[in-house]
C-alpha cells in the first residue's frame, strides 16, 4: 500500500511520518509539475504548496489511503491555477533548433539536458491553452488513463478527448513548421 509511512500517525500530526511521505512522493510530483509548468522554480513551489495542503487536509486521509491520488490532484490543480494566472505566450524567443535534432531519426539515443527539455516544453506550451496543456501532459507524458485524468481534473471524458485532439493537432503543426 504505502511505503514506510503510517497514515494514522500523519493524521494525528506526526511530522516524522509526514517527512517519509514527502520523500516518497516528492520526485513524482516534481516531474508532473515540471512538465506542466515548464519551470523549475514554479514546479518546486507547487510541490511545496501541495504538501502543505495535504498536511492541512490530513484529517481526511484514510488508512487504505489514496494519498498518491490526492497529491496528484492537488498538484495538478495548483499547476492549472498557475497556468491560468500566467499570461499566455509569455515565453521569450526560444531556440527551436532542438526540434530538428530530436525529430531526426539518427538522434534516437540523444539524451536531453534540462535546458533542451524546458525549451521544448515551453514552445509546446506556447500554443496550448491551460486545459489542453494539462490534458496533454497527463495523458501523453505521464501516460495516465482518461479515467484517471477525469478523476483528477474533474473534466468529462469527452472534454479530455477533444482537448487532447486539439492539443495534438496544434503541436503537430508547430513541429512540422519548425522541421520543414
Amino acid at each position: 500500500m504505502n511505503k514506510g509511512y503510517n497514515i494514522s500517525e500523519i493524521r494525528e500530526g506526526n511530522q516524522i511520518e509526514f517527512r517519509k511521505l514527502m520523500d516518497d512522493n516528492m520526485d513524482h510530483l516534481y516531474t508532473i509539475a515540471f512538465r506542466i509548468t515548464a519551470s523549475e522554480e514554479d514546479a518546486r513551489d507547487i510541490v511545496q504548496d501541495t504538501f502543505i495542503r495535504l498536511w492541512e487536509k490530513r484529517k481526511i486521509l484514510k488508512e487504505s489511503g489514496r494519498v498518491k491520488y490526492l497529491l496528484r490532484k492537488i498538484a495538478v490543480n495548483k499547476s492549472y491555477d498557475l497556468l491560468r494566472k500566467r499570461k499566455r505566450n509569455r515565453t521569450d524567443r526560444i531556440d527551436m533548433s532542438v526540434f530538428k535534432v530530436l525529430a531526426g531519426g539518427e538522434n534516437a539515443d540523444h539524451k536531453l539536458n534540462e535546458r533542451e527539455v524546458l525549451t521544448i516544453l515551453r514552445s509546446l506550451a506556447s500554443v496550448l491553452s491551460p486545459k489542453q496543456r494539462i490534458v496533454f501532459t497527463m495523458v501523453e507524458l505521464q501516460e495516465m488513463s482518461h479515467d484517471e485524468v477525469a478523476g483528477i481534473t474533474g473534466m468529462t471524458k469527452s472534454t479530455i478527448k477533444s482537448n487532447l485532439n486539439h492539443a495534438k493537432r496544434r503541436l503537430g503543426h508547430l513541429v512540422d513548421n519548425y522541421i520543414k
Binding site: Y30, Q48, L102, A103, V117, D176
Partner: peptide, 26 residues
C-alpha cells in the same frame, strides 16, 4: 515527429535539486 519528441520528453526525468531544503521548508 511529434511522437519522437514525446518519447524524448517521457524518457527525461527532471531532477529535483536540494530536496532537503524543500522538505525542511514544508
Amino acid at each position: 515527429e511529434l511522437d519522437k519528441i514525446k518519447e524524448h520528453l517521457r524518457r527525461y526525468e527532471p531532477q529535483l535539486k536540494d530536496r532537503d531544503a524543500l522538505r525542511e521548508g514544508v
